[in-house]
């Protein structure tokens, strides 16, 4: 594992489409705190669950190709990615290759490229949570979230299976909560941190997926969340795009309506570092996210603001 803040960057297919706000906000934070991302030349789709359900070899070959290309570019760099799905695919392929010399050679044959499997894979969440980067985030803050109540939502792919992900706690991860609190938010306790959002059924079975999404909003609402933070573009889309549709159904059923914007955790970090909503992509959400963000940033008077910023900066 390299200790520097320089990474081979795997943006993933959603990076300049549905996940645009994640890309913008993560790249903003990286730039501010000096994390250098070098895009892997000609990386390809990681295959995600579509490859897994189709063929075991395909699910290894697709991510392994990009990992091998990263090695070819710079053998000393670990790989960084934002998307939780990409993280899981890349990390799984590496895990398979690391099992034995036989497996590694098998992967090389599969992709027809040399691959040593020496470089590790990390998500932006894991990278930004490193103590040295928390320090850098603190040093770059110009304001705080002023106690904004945030439900940190991790979903599936960052924490399961633990032997592959090697990250945080499987049932009660804390890293995103700690980052939220670092920038002055209040990380609320709630029960759906690692429950599936149904993202993989967003298109093929939206009715079943909506049930899963609804449970997440419901639990966040019951526990007083003013915002949900995510670290995955699929989770984001599935929550943000479906909130209005869920409310239409709930209204017909006479249930209370949701009014909780979803943010990438990097948007919340970037906000406190002086990033504009446009720079961070907060203006591109389906569910309006600018008002609550504005409120959070200006919740106190100017003097409170400065005092608290100093307090947090300590």
């Amino acid at each position: 594992m390299s200790s520097t803040n320089r990474f081979a960057y795997f943006p993933g297919c959603s990076a300049d489409s549905t996940g645009i706000s994640f890309t913008k906000s993560a790249e903003f934070v990286c730039k501010r705190i000096g994390i250098e991302l070098v895009e892997i030349p000609d990386w390809c789709c990681c295959g995600t669950s579509a490859a897994l359900v189709t063929d075991k070899n395909l699910a290894v070959a697709l991510p392994a190709r990009s990992l091998a290309l990263a090695e070819k570019m710079d053998a000393d760099l670990d790989v960084a990615t934002g998307c939780a799905g990409c993280f899981n695919s890349l990390k799984s392929a590496r895990h398979f290759a690391k099992q034995s010399e036989d497996n590694r050679a098998y992967v090389e044959d599969l992709i027809d490229m040399p691959y040593s499997a020496s470089n590790d894979v990390f998500s932006f969440l894991e990278i930004m949570h490193r103590p040295e980067n928390q320090e850098l985030i603190k040093n770059n803050m110009v304001t705080t979230l002023h106690g904004l109540k945030v439900a940190s939502y991790y979903g599936c792919a960052l924490v399961r299976p633990s032997k592959v992900c090697e990250f945080d706690d499987t049932e009660d991860p804390r890293s995103m909560d700690e980052l939220i609190e670092l920038v002055g938010g209040e990380a609320i306790d709630w029960g759906y941190k690692v429950e599936c959002c149904g993202g993989s059924h967003n298109i093929s079975d939206p009715k079943a997926a909506k049930k899963l999404t609804e449970r997440i909003y419901e639990d966040a609402m019951i526990n007083g969340a003013e915002a949900i933070a995510v670290a995955c573009p699929l989770c984001f889309l599935n929550l943000d795009m479906r909130e209005k549709e869920l409310n239409a159904i709930r209204e017909a059923e006479g249930k209370s309506l949701f009014n909780i914007p979803t943010y990438y955790f990097t948007e919340l970090l970037g906000m406190t570092m002086g990033g504009s909503f446009k720079e961070l992509g907060i203006d591109k959400h389906f569910w309006p996210a600018e008002d609550i963000a504005k409120q959070a940033l200006s919740a106190r008077t100017q003097s409170d603001d400065t005092a608290e910023a100093k307090e947090v900066a300590k």
Binding site: C156, E195, C196, H201, L212
Partner: peptide, 11 residues
């Protein structure tokens, strides 16, 4: 085919 591969069961 309905399984969402969330891996809660395995975990």
């Amino acid at each position: 085919w309905i399984c969402a591969h969330c891996m809660v069961c395995s975990a």
